[in-house]
């Protein structure tokens, strides 16, 4: 099947350029950074010194749910940045160098070409997220207290949807412009604009994908999946699919024009 061939080609390529090694490692680092550094904060402050004698600092005690949220917020900022930079050239640079023309001369459908790339990136990012959150979950359990494996799995699945959405945005801009740097810039701009819009129009955009993290936090605290979370997930999936269809459409239009 053609799609599988394209998908395998992407997987092999991502393996050859070491993405399958470094992306998961970076995600693990980001996910465990905050849980561990917060745990050692008292010792770090003591080591840095400079406090007058008798000064007492009351550091908050973190609940397991809060610790996992620290990991997620780290992934939402630096993690998303790394993913955007990692994926910015996936189609754009192939078009620039002419590789995509070599591939598309053959009877390869645009739909297969785009969706295979999208799926290969999703496989990589979901795998990286899994090991990252697993490491974070492990440290949370060791250092802060119990967090059930079930909530870990739910956090993984729902947060994975947010990263799926991010990947879809990146793929979309990849088909729109040919310069990888511009793809990264536009993707970050879109994500930031969405987060600002969500904050300003919070009462209307209750189910904006940007709210996924806060609903996930509520879920971990309450121990049950709220209807808001489900609705936001559905919206996120639908938006991702729309972006992928839009990518196929713009890619077709651009390639036929050029």
């Amino acid at each position: 099947m053609q799609w599988m061939t394209l998908f395998n080609k992407e997987m092999v390529e991502n393996w050859r350029n070491k993405k399958w090694i470094w992306v998961p490692l970076v995600i693990i680092l980001l996910a465990i950074l905050d849980p561990i550094s917060n745990y050692y904060l008292p010792q770090i402050i003591e080591a840095v010194g400079g406090l007058p004698d008798g000064a007492i600092i009351n550091l908050p005690e973190f609940a397991p749910a809060e610790v996992v949220m620290m990991s997620l917020s780290q992934l939402s900022s630096l993690g998303v940045l790394v993913i955007v930079l990692m994926a910015m050239g996936t189609i754009a640079s192939e078009r620039k160098s002419g590789v995509s023309e070599l591939i598309l001369v053959k009877p390869v459908s645009y739909r297969n070409y785009i969706t295979a790339k999208w799926a290969a990136l999703l496989a990589l990012v979901w795998a990286a997220l899994f090991v990252g959150l697993l490491a974070s979950w492990y440290y949370t359990n060791i250092l802060y207290g119990d967090l059930s494996f079930k909530s870990f799995l739910l956090i993984f699945i729902f947060y994975g949807l947010w990263l799926t959405f991010v990947i879809s945005i990146i793929i979309f801009f990849n088909t729109l412009v040919k310069t990888p740097g511009l793809v990264a810039f536009l993707s970050i701009l879109t994500i930031m604009a969405m987060s600002i819009m969500t904050q300003i129009f919070g009462h209307i955009l209750e189910w904006s994908p940007n709210n996924l993290s806060s609903y996930i936090y509520e879920m971990v605290i309450a121990g049950e999946v709220s209807s808001d979370l489900v609705a936001t997930s559905v919206i996120t999936i639908v938006l991702s699919l729309i972006l992928v269809f839009a990518s196929i459409f713009t890619f077709k239009a651009k390639e036929l024009a050029s």
Partner: peptide, 11 residues
């Protein structure tokens, strides 16, 4: 606890 950081950086 700190070892994983060093290992990951090393890899």
């Amino acid at each position: 606890i700190v070892a994983p950081f060093i290992v990951i950086q090393g890899i």
